[in-house]
């Protein structure tokens, strides 16, 4: 919103005294400071998460037991892992609907291709990730080269990914995931002695890694600049096409990996396995306060995931039905958008 408001200054070609630099931070009231903090970090969302947890604890005895907390964390981690790619894509003003397809592709790979003679499963997985990445890269290239809205191309790519894996696997859905994959997300398993399932640890590491990558490396800076202003980024000698290709490739590769983990969690794999995660990933990104083209970060998405998951867990626990959750999802996304993602007024574009 800040950006929107300030953006309007320039249209007026203002002639202002040169003292319009913002007042020093001491001059800000407490409310303004909180507001400015909220713009940088989804504070309200975090507080809401805590409040919802408290509500759950008050209403349901045993809600804060380690066992049930672990389950919540696993759910968070699964959504969180599925949302990494979406965060990156939204930051460059795109959207990735192929997520669902690549999740299915990853899940099918790990459940169906475990017994291919001569090819050990890890090799198979690497192959899947590489193929997925290449497809994603192609998606990014086509969108950028021909200025096509990614919604269509990613939709098609997801469909192709599901189709190809199904054809290769002969459409079978019999076999389950290998034990080690199941253990990744089994709530009662532990990680090197830590009392949390491996998937949660993986997610924690991913949060750190993605954040460092986004905000502390040149590649991350190029990505953010591409989202902030493609034209300015290109003029600053950033190859925005390379950024698009890379981001979509990474998003697809990560979705394949997320699919592998999900296969272990879900037990049986079908073509619709990825759909809820696709919608949740968009919801989490928006809810965390990442706007199309930025500002945003994976940390914000993480908070979005926490809120989204705790709310739905508590609602389920309290006997609310899927219907109420869906409605709440929608309302929450709208509220988050109203806070962050408003566009410029038409009159400021004249």
């Amino acid at each position: 919103m800040m950006t929107t408001q300030q953006g309007s200054l320039d249209t007026a070609a203002p002639l202002a005294p040169d003292i319009t630099a913002p007042a020093p931070p001491e001059g800000l009231s407490a409310a303004q400071r909180l507001l400015s903090l909220q713009r940088r970090f989804p504070l309200v969302q975090l507080l809401l998460t805590v409040a919802v947890l408290g509500w759950g604890a008050a209403a349901m005895p045993g809600f804060l037991d380690p066992t049930s907390l672990r389950s919540v964390l696993v759910l968070c981690a699964l959504t969180g892992l599925a949302s990494i790619g979406q965060t990156l894509v939204v930051l460059i003003r795109g959207i990735d609907l192929s997520l669902a397809g690549f999740i299915v592709a990853g899940a099918v790979t790990v459940t169906q291709f475990g017994d291919v003679p001569g090819v050990p499963l890890p090799v198979m997985l690497v192959l899947a990730v590489v193929c997925g990445g290449a497809t994603g890269g192609l998606v990014g290239y086509l969108c950028h080269r021909f200025a096509i809205h990614p919604i269509i191309v990613t939709l098609a790519a997801g469909s192709i990914a599901v189709g190809v894996t199904a054809v290769l696997s002969g459409g079978g859905t019999g076999a389950g995931a290998p034990g080690w994959v199941v253990r990744l997300s089994a709530p009662m398993s532990s990680t090197f002695g830590l009392p949390v399932p491996p998937v949660v640890v993986i997610w924690g590491l991913a949060v750190v890694a993605v954040s460092v990558l986004l905000h502390r490396t040149r590649s991350g800076r190029r990505l953010l600049a591409t989202g902030a202003s493609p034209v300015a980024a290109e003029l600053a000698h950033i190859s925005t096409r390379k950024v698009w290709v890379t981001v979509y490739a990474v998003s697809a590769a990560l979705a394949i990996l997320a699919g592998v983990v999900l296969a272990g969690f879900a037990g049986n794999v079908d073509n619709r396995l990825g759909n809820p995660y696709l919608f949740q990933s968009i919801a989490a990104v928006v809810l965390g306060g990442t706007a199309f083209g930025g500002p945003g970060s994976y940390t914000r998405t993480t908070v979005g995931v926490l809120l989204l998951t705790t709310v739905s867990t508590v609602l389920v626990g309290l006997g609310f039905q899927e219907a109420d959750q869906q409605i709440l999802n929608g309302v929450v996304i709208l509220a988050a958008m109203a806070l962050y993602g408003r566009e410029r007024r038409l009159r400021d574009q004249v």
């Binding site: 959207i95 919604i151 919608f279 968009i282 919801a283 928006v286 199309f292 899927e322 219907a323 109420d324 959750q325 869906q326 409605i327 709440l328 999802n329 929608g330 309302v331 996304i333 709208l334 958008m337 109203a338 993602g341 408003r342 566009e343 410029r344 007024r345």
Partner: peptide
């Protein structure tokens, strides 16, 4: 609301599905 149509209608998708 000056909100992105794709996100607004996604939210509406959730609300209506509910």
């Amino acid at each position: 609301g000056r909100l992105q149509p794709i996100v607004v209608s996604l939210a509406m998708f959730f609300v209506l599905t509910g």
